[in-house]
């Protein structure tokens, strides 16, 4: 499927307070383009979880959003420590986030499950010591 538009965002790993800026910008773009509100909500929440994960675990990364009328694809790529056991990480409640992150209200072990819940397709490619790439696909109708 041909992507008509591509947006790239650098996710700043050093600033937890600003996490979500890319998701908020994507939400604005999708709204301007007239995508349905429920789809916009699903995309922006799933992407926000990805941003948070990159900030917590990988000191930031890249977020790329590809748009076509039929599909929205979000690719989140980091060069962090990688996920040792993806199946375990996909379980609700499993988290390796440190205590200081939990005190901010994150690290509940819902990040990856929420990304799966809100997307139509999700693939996780991760190699320990190399990094993680998560691709989320959302069907526009």
């Amino acid at each position: 499927m041909e992507d008509l538009l591509h947006y790239h965002y650098d996710v700043d790993g050093g600033n937890f307070a600003s996490a979500g800026e890319a998701s908020v910008q994507v939400k604005r773009v999708l709204r301007q383009m007239g995508f349905p509100p429920d789809l916009i909500r699903r995309v922006s929440i799933a992407m926000y979880e990805g941003e948070i994960n990159m900030v917590i675990h990988a000191k930031g990364g890249d977020a790329d959003v590809y748009l076509s009328p039929e599909q929205i694809r979000v690719v989140l790529k980091d060069v962090g420590p990688g996920i040792k056991d993806v199946a375990l990480a996909m379980q609700e409640g499993y988290s390796t986030a440190p205590d200081n992150i939990r005190s901010l209200g994150f690290g509940a072990g819902m990040g990856l499950p929420n990304m799966k819940r809100y997307s139509d397709e999700m693939t996780v490619e991760s190699t320990v010591g190399v990094g993680t790439t998560i691709t989320l696909v959302f069907n526009a109708f």
């Binding site: 926000y48 948070i52 901010l104 509940a108 819902m110 819940r117």
Partner: peptide, 21 residues
Amino acid sequence: LLSWVMGRGQYGDCWFTIMSN
């Protein structure tokens, strides 16, 4: 727990929380 809220909260909700960051 913000991710929990994101997974369960709905559009139009009145959200009660003690988290304030």
